[in-house]
Design a binder for these strands. Structure first.
Length: 112
DNA sequence: TCGCTGACGCATT
DNA sequence: GAATGCGCCAGCG
């Protein structure tokens, strides 16, 4: 790892943002990307999560609208749903209830 | 160096 | 509601 310096910073920014997500709350890739200073690079967030270190609350990151991107048959789908429910996040099928994903832009990232 | 791929987002059909 | 296409651009072979 060396040339990854530039993006490495972006990855850390993404991880930092993900860690900043309060328990019982979820955020979307696009929101995280934007908050990490990478607007429009939601895919980078996906990559960041893929290579994310253990301990990162990746399960708090869902697709736009609070939808889970994984197929229902996926093991991660079940795990993410399980973890979210364990934190008090309500889920309906493969989607997070609006209350949890409520205006992320308003509840979360409220910068004074 | 070039080209494909991709934990996505959004518009459209 | 589900499927498809296009865009954004950083990794990786």
């Amino acid at each position: 790892m060396q040339a990854t310096g530039t993006s490495h910073q972006a990855l850390q920014a993404i991880w930092k943002t993900v860690r900043a997500i309060p328990r019982g709350q979820v955020s979307s890739y696009g929101t995280v990307a934007k908050r990490a200073g990478l607007p429009g690079r939601a895919r980078l967030v996906g990559y960041a999560l893929k290579i994310a270190p253990s301990g990162l609350p990746w399960h708090r990151v869902v697709a736009a609208g609070g939808r889970i991107t994984f197929p229902k048959t996926s093991r991660q789908f079940a795990e993410q749903r399980k973890r979210l429910r364990a934190e008090g996040v309500e889920l309906t099928g493969g989607r997070v209830v609006s209350e949890a994903s409520i205006s992320l832009d308003e509840l979360l990232w409220k910068r004074p």
